[in-house]
């Protein structure tokens, strides 16, 4: 028995030591690596901005949005990027689903939590998730996998990019999309005050760093808009009015494109739609800003 314990301890100590060394090396890389976004117009948010603003047509802009990104994650990203970057304009998506309490479940949900932690491990600590229910297994799994297994120089999983989708025909998935965005286990998830608070934190952060914040609602297909639960519509418009009263620029362009041929699915544009929408957005900004 004594021999077994001794061998077991040695067997465990070796990898623990190895993991610890990697942890410190990776921490060093995270702290010393500066992300230079090389732009003065930054596009952030979730897949709505990611798939609708094509930066090949938007001079000086960089799209770092990622699919399903809640405001909490956007806030952490911006907090990190503001340290070393001078950003003039920040384009953030503002959409009905952004205030859904479904976003709060992304850190406990089996499918999404791993992906969220994978993006955020380098710019967050466990205490950042205090207000959320989280999937600890996935959290520690991602943490160890990314920080302890081997040294890696780049830890920038939180930086996304424009991701246009080709499609000739719309995949009409409005029922599934509505279900995914506003319902959880067949129940209306309600409004997330955490999301609204983090939107507020982003506004404050932008203000503190002299960034012009522009909230954009990208085009949505009529089959989607018509089926958004009323509590979300009411809260969205109420929030929109209050933001406008606070002098925040809100561009509701949800109905700026309506033809099916520009949609990939019920809530995302395809490549052609993104090209068209980017031009609409630039024109609108030129009109409003200058």
């Amino acid at each position: 028995m004594k021999r077994f314990i001794e061998v077991a301890i040695i067997f465990i100590i070796i990898p623990v030591f190895y993991l610890l060394i990697n942890y410190f090396i990776n921490r060093y890389f995270i702290n010393s690596h500066v992300i230079d976004v090389q732009t003065n117009v930054l596009i952030v948010g979730n897949s709505h901005n990611r798939r609708s603003i094509d930066t090949t047509f938007f001079k000086n802009a960089k799209n770092i949005a990622q699919g399903a990104e809640p405001y909490f994650a956007t806030y952490l990203k911006l907090k990190k990027l503001c340290v070393n970057n001078k950003i003039d304009t920040l384009i953030l998506n503002f959409f009905y689903g952004d205030i859904s309490a479904g976003n709060d479940k992304k850190f406990i949900n089996k499918k999404w939590s791993g992906e969220m932690f994978k993006r955020l491990y380098a710019i967050s600590s466990l205490s950042d998730f205090n207000q959320f229910e989280i999937n600890y297994r996935n959290y520690f799994y991602v943490y160890i996998k990314n920080l302890c297994l081997y040294p890696k120089v780049k830890h920038d999983n939180y930086i996304g990019s424009f991701n246009g989708k080709k499609s000739k025909k719309i995949h009409n998935d409005s029922t599934e999309a509505i279900e995914r965005h506003y319902f959880y286990e067949d129940k209306n998830v309600g409004i997330s005050y955490l999301c609204i608070n983090y939107l507020d934190s982003i506004i404050n952060l932008a203000d503190k760093n002299n960034m012009k914040l522009i909230l954009v609602t990208a085009p949505l297909h009529s089959s989607y808009i018509n089926n958004i639960p009323t509590n979300f519509q009411d809260s969205f418009f109420e929030l929109k009015d209050s933001l406008i009263n606070e002098k925040i620029m809100v561009l509701d362009l949800s109905e700026s494109i309506i033809e099916d041929k520009y949609f990939y699915n019920s809530d995302h544009l395809n490549n052609k739609g993104a090209k068209k929408f980017t031009k609409i957005l630039i024109d609108t900004l030129n009109c409003k800003l200058y």
Partner: peptide, 14 residues
């Protein structure tokens, strides 16, 4: 250790 590494690194969704 190699097998344990594979478990950690390539372990799919539970």
């Amino acid at each position: 250790y190699f097998i344990i590494f594979l478990i950690f690194y390539f372990g799919g969704e539970q």
